[in-house]
Simulated scan of single mutants.
Amino acid sequence: MKRMITPSADSISYFQRHKNVVSSKANTVKGEPNLIKQNLQSLESAIEARYSAFESSLSSGNLFNLAQDPILAEHKDDLLSCYTGRTAKVKEIFSSIEDVQPANFLRRCPYCGITLPKTYDHYLPESLYPELSVHALNLIPCCNSCNQTKNNFWKNDNHRLFLHFYMDIIPDIQYLNVRLVSDINLCAVGAIFSISRAPNIPNNVWDVLSMHYIKLNLIKIYNELANNEISEVFNVCISHLRGGGIDVGRFINILLSSDEQLYGINHWRVVLMKALSRSDDFERAVRASV
């Protein structure tokens, strides 16, 4: 699990992208003035102030305290029309997010690290912060499952519940662990995942990080996926040995190197494969099947 690269605002500011979305709306609807567009244009100064407040809260690490705007909430439907229209200008915002990420990074959902992210999550829920519906820093690529699970939840009384992948510190220290379980009689290896706080991970970082795993039920999901993943690695290692390969552990490390570089040392698949590369029981099971 790694922090994402922040979409740039150097050439086009985040607020200018919002204005571009509004400007791209038709001036008339069925021959009548487009009242939604007119209303959004009248709200520009208030929306710009909210963009500034949101960006400031992100840069200061104080997103938890960003309150809702009750006045803009009254214009929720019009504000959300900026996103739901999915115009070319909205797609440009998506591209500004996707294009700056490393190649292949978005093959896996940043929230869970498992499936292809085909949707965007509004980190601050669009139902509560509709004025930020097309702010690039409020849009996190994610899979349908994570998007539905997160829903409108984002904080409790004490801290946020999910990682913000443009803002949060994601420790480059091992906190996701796996214990391999071997059945020598069956020449089989299973896995049990867990998370544990390393001493040098601050409490405020761990509060959000650990809750992210809890709320998305990631440990249970990883445990359910582990057997299939182990079977896949097992079969690839058999093919490696049958093709003249010698060192199983080194071969597994070669396989995981690209994922480790992309997703970090705490990606569930990286953690699992590293454990397999060091397991004598796994290597024995592989060699017994060649």
Rank of each mutant, 00 (worst) to 15 (best):
A53Y: 07
A53D: 15
A53P: 05
A53S: 15
A53E: 14
E55V: 00
S56I: 05
S56M: 10
S59K: 14
S59T: 13
S60G: 06
N62A: 07
F64P: 00
L66G: 06
A67E: 15
A67P: 00
D69N: 15
D69R: 09
L72H: 11
L72W: 01
E74Y: 00
D77H: 01
D78A: 15
L80R: 15
S81D: 14
Y83M: 03
Y83N: 06
R86F: 01
T87S: 15
A88L: 07
A88N: 11
K91Y: 11
I93E: 03
I93M: 03
F94A: 12
S95C: 04
I97Q: 06
E98F: 02
E98Q: 12
V100A: 03
P102H: 09
P102Y: 01
A103T: 14
N104V: 02
N104S: 12
N104A: 13
L106F: 04
C109A: 03
P110A: 02
P110I: 08
C112P: 04
C112I: 02
P117S: 00
P117Q: 09
K118G: 11
T119L: 04
Y120K: 09
Y123E: 04
Y123T: 03
Y123L: 01
L124A: 08
P125L: 07
P125Q: 09
E126H: 12
S127A: 12
Y129H: 07
P130T: 04
P130E: 03
E131V: 09
L132R: 03
V134F: 10
A136R: 11
L137F: 04
L137T: 00
L139P: 06
L139C: 04
C146M: 08
C146G: 00
Q148M: 13
T149I: 15
K150A: 07
N151Q: 09
N152A: 13
W154G: 02
K155H: 12
K155Y: 00
K155P: 00
N156P: 10
N156W: 06
D157G: 01
N158M: 08
N158K: 13
F162L: 07
L163E: 03
H164E: 10
F165Y: 12
F165H: 06
D168A: 05
D168Q: 07
I169V: 13
I170Q: 03
P171G: 03
P171N: 00
P171K: 05
Q174P: 07
V178R: 04
V178K: 08
V178I: 10
R179G: 10
L180C: 04
V181F: 10
V181Y: 05
V181P: 05
V181H: 12
S182E: 13
S182W: 06
D183F: 00
A188H: 09
V189D: 01
F193I: 10
S194T: 13
S194V: 01
S194E: 06
I195G: 09
S196V: 10
R197W: 00
A198C: 02
P199S: 14
N200C: 09
N200L: 14
N200R: 13
N200V: 12
